[in-house]
Design a binder for these strands. Sequence first.
DNA 1: TCAATTTACTAAATCGGTTTAGTTATTTTT
DNA 2: AAAAATAACTAAACCGATTTAGTAAATTGA
Lengths: 340, 340
Amino acid sequence: MKKLYLKDVAKELNVSKTAVSLVLNGKGDENKISQETQQKIISFVKEHNYIPNQLARGLSRGKSETIGLIIPNISDTFYSKVAGVIERKAKEKGYTVLFSSSYEDPKTEGELIQSMLNRQVDGLIIASTQKNKKEIEFLKKEKFPFVLFDRFYPEHDTDYVIVDNFYGTKKVTEHLLGLGRKHIGFVTLKPGLEPIAQRLQGYHNALQGHNIVANHDYVKEIKREEYFSEVEEALKDLVLCKQPVDAIVFSTHYLASQGLRVLKKLKVKVPDDVAIVSFDELSAFDIVEPPVTAVVQPVKEIGCSAIEILLSKIAGEVQTKFQTKVLKTKLEIRGSCGNK
Amino acid sequence: MKKLYLKDVAKELNVSKTAVSLVLNGKGDENKISQETQQKIISFVKEHNYIPNQLARGLSRGKSETIGLIIPNISDTFYSKVAGVIERKAKEKGYTVLFSSSYEDPKTEGELIQSMLNRQVDGLIIASTQKNKKEIEFLKKEKFPFVLFDRFYPEHDTDYVIVDNFYGTKKVTEHLLGLGRKHIGFVTLKPGLEPIAQRLQGYHNALQGHNIVANHDYVKEIKREEYFSEVEEALKDLVLCKQPVDAIVFSTHYLASQGLRVLKKLKVKVPDDVAIVSFDELSAFDIVEPPVTAVVQPVKEIGCSAIEILLSKIAGEVQTKFQTKVLKTKLEIRGSCGNK
DNA sequence: TCAATTTACTAAATCGGTTTAGTTATTTTT
DNA sequence: AAAAATAACTAAACCGATTTAGTAAATTGA
């Protein structure tokens, strides 16, 4: 049996393409196609396993039942987890997801947005590089449905889903202070991303709250592409000096795991010599030595919220204002900070 | 400025749609479109940023420049890494990837294959549940380009990319034997997947090679959906009994990490009381305690080979036989087996 | 010098659906 | 019994590209 097309089904049943199309799209009743004919069509289609060409369908309906997902890196555990929930939720609603990684390159990201638009995706979910204002403005102007997550553009009104980065680091920094740590380092990425900025602020705010003067040298900014070696340098500075820190907050999971790797290599005792905590986590953080205290992000809610907001926009629900969601993080206390 | 279509470009420049289309597809010369006209078209298009609708393009050309990726779970670090390399390589060649997870459900997988075909993907890369022979036969019969990876159908000739699972576990089991471990347990998934079967065989083969009679009770088969609790039960059996094992091979990374978690909980000393090794790894395996010796899979080569084979099939290169690739694993020795 | 080529295009068909605007036969209303 | 309304369809336009089959004008060949 070869491939069936709409016209074959119509011919076979002696009805018009219109009739078949209407029935298959659930518009049989409203178009007064008799129950007999509807049954005839439905059972034939089921039996012969006819499935419409989505390209043709998309072309004529002006939509593709596809949503685009643009993230920095599908191989990163955080994004792959979010991608998993987005994909699952999308499928429940009949959407397929087209994904691409920008690898933090704004140009690539811009091209991806364009490419996805050409492919007629019905909406976009983006964890942006935050360096594509033009594209974002373009999407807004065109009223194209999109939702940002993880990273957003604070100077633009858009729909977005993020976590409370500020309070996340604030909480964990206070946790360290509460355990008597006084010299707290902060290892983070070079500025440019909103969540990273807010995590830094949370750290500063916690210190201020305890009347601790922030030591500039305690904040280390890492170039992401070279984080492996730069974390090592940073930690040597923080730990092997006259005034070593007694705790370190890492602003991402990979900085933290590399940090722990380096500290082991330097034979620094965690948490005795220095406590460490991570913003965001790795599934193995509970079995590393010592288990790493982490600010965990509600991955599932992030994905669900993003899809929900996007689908409501695709459905064209009238919106007076942008939908934004700031989700709470959870502090998962493990052994890497020691006890009081 | 609103959206530009091919006809707008044509009208604006006083040429036919045909001319514009030919030029944009690099067929200007062979169709004797004058250099002037070609230049005119190209610069207009560049300036006004016209980009063709891929659905229309796909519909009329019968291809979509999209490849479908069907994997068990995008959130699993192994698959998300492979997905990353596939996506990157695909983009280099002008393809976008549509992905979906089957969550190990054959029915879902079958639907995904159908759905991707309707979406006119040009080819498929599948890490199959191995329970969809019908679909696979269908794809073969239709001569639809597809490549399997990680899991394949040994009873069907297809193109596939796998790793040498047999030799991987054989090697690591011999490593344990070489360190003087004699009572080696094997914690694996319930049968049904080829790589899992081969890993088990590798283990048996290594034991045989050392004239050790395999103890049936030492092989524990876990139901994947409940691996968290079942690994715990299995380990209690293996470790807290009259004849406890002195080493355990785990056949996947998540079994291994859960195994380590449980052993810690049971206060079993690794590697003193029992050595452990994992097939496949987690990026944090070098910082867990103890660092876990693992059989690492060449993720990058897996992805690259899969795409390469697929693209060669899409290009329609004449093939006398199926392209299969069995890649080597690497034994990464860490602390979880102790020393001699 | 006139047919045969070549050059530089274009009109129209096509891809496989959806949707609008009818059409015909039957039933209801007046 | 004629007009209006309804039921049950269908022909053809359309989505936005690609591609086939031409065509008119300029050039070449004999």
